[in-house]
């Protein structure tokens, strides 16, 4: 039965390539049909390749959820204690409740605003410092000691001093966010600019480019792959630092929300906050990559 159904379908397609000699309309249709067919085949091939992996991943996640559910259902308590851990279903309920709550969005927006300000400042200052360090021996000798001393200090360690230094809690959290993003951006920019190809600079010079034009058209684009990696890493560290700041101080923000849920013994919201933090961090890093993509098209195209 199945074989009989597929057979007549397959025949016109098989005949199609033979049509062209008979007339132009057929000739125009045949390649289009072949192209569509090719696209569908490629899609199937892709599904065939990643499909099994996706299925395994899905099964793994579902079994994890199930284990979590069972552990909370039976109050599992051996080394790890699940007695106070909310079940997946309660977390989901709490999530739906929060989605309907205006304050939840305020927490998210406050966090995003801190990231935006701190990160943008880090990008501006970090790229400038990285370029300066790569291009000027003096700038490098001047800035490097600071980087070496400050870089190993985690954002959390900065919190008490930041609160003392800055006029408001808000500004101290933004400062910590900024600091987190700064170092990866500075170092990656510096390395990217250092990798500038001497031949390309010479070529640009002999084509009449000024120093500024060489920077704009040769040095900067050449450093962009490295800078863009630094921007993505910086975004991750920036979130990490933000959370540390929000948990320890502040009245708003998704980190505060999460910690506050603990203080208020509102345990499902802890997990809601955690998942939200993960999602927002991933989203921001993704946005950085998407923003950089048009500038790096040349990298993905090869013979």
């Amino acid at each position: 039965m199945g074989a009989m159904q597929t057979k007549p379908k397959a025949t016109p397609e098989a005949v199609a390539p033979a049509v062209p000699p008979q007339g132009p309309p057929g000739a125009a249709e045949a390649p289009a049909a072949a192209r569509d067919k090719g696209r569908a085949e490629r899609a199937f091939a892709l599904l065939g390749r990643v499909g099994p992996d996706l299925a395994v991943g899905l099964v793994a996640l579902l079994s994890g959820l199930l284990l979590w559910h069972l552990a909370t259902l039976y109050n599992f308590n051996y080394v790890i204690n699940f007695q106070n851990v909310p079940s997946p279903l309660r977390v989901f309920d709490a999530f739906l409740t929060q989605l309907a709550d205006e304050e939840f969005y305020i927490h998210i927006l406050v966090s995003l605003r801190r990231i935006l300000i701190g990160y943008v400042l880090a990008v501006i200052l970090g790229v400038a410092a990285g370029v300066a360090m790569a291009r000027s021996r003096f700038a490098r000798a001047f800035i490097y000691p600071y980087i070496e001393i400050l870089r190993p200090i985690p954002a959390v360690a900065w919190i008490p001093l930041a609160i003392l230094m800055w006029p408001s809690e808000e500004s101290s959290i933004v400062y910590i966010t900024f600091l987190g993003a700064l170092f990866p951006i500075v170092l990656n920019t510096m390395h990217g600019v250092e990798q500038t190809s001497e031949v390309l600079v010479r070529a640009a010079k002999s084509l009449g480019a000024s120093r500024l034009q060489i920077f704009r058209h040769v040095i900067l684009p050449g450093a962009l792959p490295s800078i863009s990696a630094g921007l993505a890493i910086g975004m991750g560290v920036s979130w990490f630092s933000l959370l540390a700041g929000e948990i320890i101080s502040g009245q708003y923000g998704i980190g505060y929300f999460t910690w506050n849920a603990y203080s208020l013994i509102n345990y499902p919201d802890i997990v809601v906050g955690m998942l939200m933090i993960g999602a927002l961090g991933t989203l921001c890093t993704y946005l950085v990559r998407v923003a950089m993509r048009p500038l790096l098209v040349w990298q993905r195209r090869t013979r």
């Binding site: 190809s197 031949v199 390309l200 010479r202 070529a203 640009a204 010079k205 002999s206 084509l207 009449g208 058209h217 040769v218 684009p221 050449g222 962009l224 040349w298 990298q299």
Partner: peptide, 20 residues
Amino acid sequence: TGPGPDRGMVFQQYSLFPWK
């Protein structure tokens, strides 16, 4: 006294701007 557009230069390889 320095490179200039009156003297065009062609190198052995890898001298095109890869991002252009």
